[in-house]
Amino acid sequence: MQVTIIINGETVSHDVEPRTLLVHYIREQAALTGTNIGCDSSSCGACTIHVNGEAAKSCTMLAVQADGQEVTTIEGLADGETLHPMQQAFHECHALQCGYCTPGMVMAAISLLDENPQADEEEIREGLEGNLCRCTGYHNIVKAVLQVGSDQ
C-alpha cells in the first residue's frame, strides 16, 4: 500500500506492507535513525515522535495510520546548526548519560510544553511518565524542561 507522509516538513511516499510499524518505516524506509526502538511495547517512550504536533509512540502505530499526516522526528527539530531550545537545554543541563532515551524524551518534553507551557516540576515529572531513562537521569531532564518553560 502506498503511503504519503509529511515527515519533518518533506512529503515522502513509499510502498509499505499494512503491518509495517511506523517506527520501522521511519528508521528503515525514511532512513531516519534518530528515533530509537526500546521496549517495542509502548512502555519506554524511546520511539516517541510527533504526529500532527502531538507526542505518540511510533512502535504502537502502523505506518498506514500516519498516511497523509505530519510526522516530526528528532531530526526535524534543529534549524541547521542551531539546536531546538529543548535540545539546547538538554545539552546545557546535561540531561542525558547514555543518550538512548534522549530523542524520545526530547519529543515528549516538547509536546508536554506545547500543551502546558507553564508546567511546574510536578507536572513535568507527571507529563514524562511515558518515557523511561535507565541511567536514572530524570533530575537533569526535568531541569532542562523547566529551563525551556521559564524561557518561553
Partner: peptide
C-alpha cells in the same frame, strides 16, 4: 490511562 502519548492516540 497509560501516559500522554497513549492518551493522544
Amino acid at each position: 490511562v497509560g501516559d500522554p502519548q497513549v492518551r493522544h492516540r
